[in-house]
Simulated scan of single mutants.
Amino acid sequence: MPVAPPFPRLPSLNALRAFEAAARLGGFAQAAQELQVTPGAISAQVKLLEDDLGAPLFERSARGVRLTSLGARALPGFIAAFDGMSEAMRHLRQEATPGRVHIATLPALAQLWLAPRLPGLRAALPDMEISITALETPPNLKRVPFDLCLFYANHNGATPLCDDHILPVCTPELAHHLHHPRDLATATCLTDATWAGDWEIWAERALPDHAFTPRGPVFSLYALAVQEALAGAGVLIARRALVAPHLDSGALVAPFATSAPAPAPIAAWSLPGSISSPTAIALDRALRRSAAEPTKST
């Protein structure tokens, strides 16, 4: 009778991914955010791997998790392995769908900066299929299938597309009641939650000798805050590049002459050291040309 001993099996790929992400990022919550699952799912997958190995990979405490010496020794090999797998998958996608480009960008940039430019980009690149995913923070391009990131950024790998400026804007009707930046003390001020500090940045220039605290609603969607400003609900602390069509049309005006540079320009980047597809390179160049052109209000 032939002998059929149990064949050793590899651990679950999901468990290995959970360990690599948690170890590289320093916690289960961070890994869960990157892998788009819950921290409990990461914890369960790591526990499965530890049970399979018969040894702990993390020390757990009320303050979080910390790699054991075994986990720390294993991490570099797993980072290299998943880097290689991601690079192979990236090239496979480029070969399979050479005309497709996937952009990751901020929701506000997607709605107010990129969307108005899409018709021109499609006309300039008729054979290209452009997909867009809105994210609050830039993704790790080594771990997710995006070809291009478009965010406010000033790190070494990002190439600026255009500078931006911070300034209050409102309808012409509201502007008639605003003669000096100090008048904002009694005005309804509209704020985006992501850029809540923009009022402070602007006030440091416009009101250097006065303490200013904006009073008014805060929005989690910048496009909604813009719509409220257009409806006359208050004075929005704006990014000029995002409201430029409304300023050009006169639907919104800047009641004061003072503006302040945004902390970072609108910038684009792809994975450093990777071989970008010709399609992604073409889109990158088209975006740079488009950034220098005005957009029309919709």
Rank of each mutant, 00 (worst) to 15 (best):
T133S: 15
D192N: 12
C149G: 10
L150N: 07
T295W: 00
G99F: 06
A233Q: 13
V65N: 08
S43H: 12
M128E: 02
P294A: 05
V253M: 04
F146W: 09
Q36S: 13
G197S: 12
P119R: 07
A134I: 07
M128C: 14
L252T: 01
F212L: 02
L114M: 03
G84D: 12
E129F: 04
H155A: 11
G250N: 04
D52G: 14
A286T: 03
V235F: 02
D284F: 15
W269P: 03
G84A: 14
P217K: 05
A23E: 01
V144R: 14
W113D: 06
L224I: 10
L161R: 12
T159E: 14
N156D: 15
V253N: 04
V243R: 12
G77P: 00
P138H: 09
I166C: 06
H210G: 00
P139I: 04
E173W: 01
L167K: 03
I79M: 09
R215V: 13
A244F: 03
A241W: 01
D51L: 11
H180A: 14
P255T: 05
C149W: 05
E95T: 11
D183M: 03
H210R: 08
V144I: 06
Y222G: 02
R288C: 02
A124K: 12
L271D: 04
H180I: 02
D183I: 04
A231R: 07
R122H: 15
A15T: 01
R63E: 13
I132R: 10
S249G: 08
A158F: 12
D147K: 08
A292T: 09
L287T: 01
S276T: 09
I103A: 01
A244Q: 15
A88R: 15
L10N: 08
A62P: 01
H179L: 12
F28Y: 15
S12P: 00
P8F: 09
V235M: 05
H176P: 00
P8D: 07
R215F: 07
A104M: 00
A22W: 07
D163Q: 15
